[in-house]
């Protein structure tokens, strides 16, 4: 039986807004709108989208780095407690080097969560740090070095060790391998899979790379312009996408197998966030859009077992 470890309901994050000193209203940009999702214990939930789709903003809200404008987050059934920041859900950053304080040694970086979240004594800390270094495959003599002495892959291992330190079971991985070379990317993805099995972790895995998400995720949500447009088990989503945007993403990805990419005819531009369209945000790029797509926004609706999409005229609707 699956148990939900994290439930997010109708999360919305708006930037700007309010009034200036002179009383003129400032423009509002909705980075994330009405996103609901559930993380089940032990799964890897993939979130796919291109730049500007709101996936990083969503991730920051889920771990508590940013406060939602609207909506609720429940962790293990209880509302999110800001005092537990870092204790239940941790974060692995995209840029491994800039997520480590350049003036701290690796030991000091890894000690911080043990001191402030776990309140461990000196000996317990040293033992735990050695255990963590071993778990992420780094030599203990790296502990006294500074972040700039490490390569991207090694720095990302330190970032992962930091996220594991406080024994949070939910790890949000924000593009954890997109800054890495492909051979290092493979090492880190394998490490993440091993750690998940070993510590019983639940992952929210954010990426722009569909092939990576397909290789790691159990379920996948596709985001476009701040909303989830499709959500399904990974195998179903990649085999039978219902939303035309998911189709376009799949067709655009260049593959080593040599299949020709299909670029789509429409210019690949997002709508103006200051003047969002009333209907489907993808309509301007969609080859199947009709008049009513532009008039009203399609809701995220179920379209088969565990599969939902926000499209009025979904693809593959018959299967």
């Amino acid at each position: 039986m699956t148990t939900a470890v994290l439930e997010a309901e109708e999360l919305t994050k708006a930037f700007g807004g309010g009034r200036s000193l002179l009383g003129a209203p400032k423009p509002v940009i909705h980075a994330v709108q009405d996103v609901s999702l559930t993380l089940n214990e032990g799964e890897t939930f993939g979130v796919v989208g291109e730049s500007g789709c709101g996936k990083s903003t969503l991730a920051r809200m889920l771990v508590g780095l940013s406060t939602p404008t609207r909506g609720t987050i429940r962790i293990a059934g209880k509302p999110f407690d800001r005092h537990l920041l870092g204790a239940t859900a941790q974060y692995v950053f995209q840029d491994p080097v800039s997520s480590l304080n350049p003036r701290h040694t690796v030991r000091r970086i890894l000690e911080a969560p043990l001191i402030h979240l776990k309140r461990l004594g000196r000996d317990a800390r040293a033992a735990r740090i050695n255990y963590l270094m071993d778990a992420v495959g780094l030599r203990p003599d790296f502990l006294e070095r500074y972040p700039h002495e490490f390569s991207g892959g090694q720095a990302q291992r330190i970032g992962i060790a930091r996220a594991l330190a406080a024994e949070a079971r939910i790890i949000v991985l924000d593009e954890p391998v997109s800054a890495l070379d492909v051979s290092v990317q493979a090492q880190i993805l394998n490490l993440l899979a091993d750690l998940k099995a070993r510590f019983g972790l639940t992952y929210l895995f954010i990426s722009h790379d569909l092939a990576v998400v397909e290789a790691v995720a159990d379920r996948v949500a596709v985001m476009y312009f701040g909303r989830i447009v499709e959500e399904a088990p990974a195998d179903r989503l990649f085999a039978h996408p219902h939303h035309p945007y998911t189709r376009l993403l799949l067709d655009s990805a260049p593959a080593i197998t040599g299949k020709r990419i299909d670029a789509g005819e429409q210019p690949a531009e997002l709508p103006d966030p200051l003047a969002p369209p009333p209907g489907c945000a993808f309509a301007e790029r969609c080859p199947h859009a009709r008049a009513d797509c532009r008039a009203r926004r399609p809701p995220l609706a179920p379209m088969g077992p565990y599969h939902s999409a926000a499209c009025l005229y979904p693809l593959n609707a018959t299967d």
Binding site: Q187, L189, N190, A255
Partner: peptide, 14 residues
Amino acid sequence: CVPVLGSGRRRFDA
């Protein structure tokens, strides 16, 4: 090492 779309869940040969 390169992830290939359509090959499902897998480990990589790092």
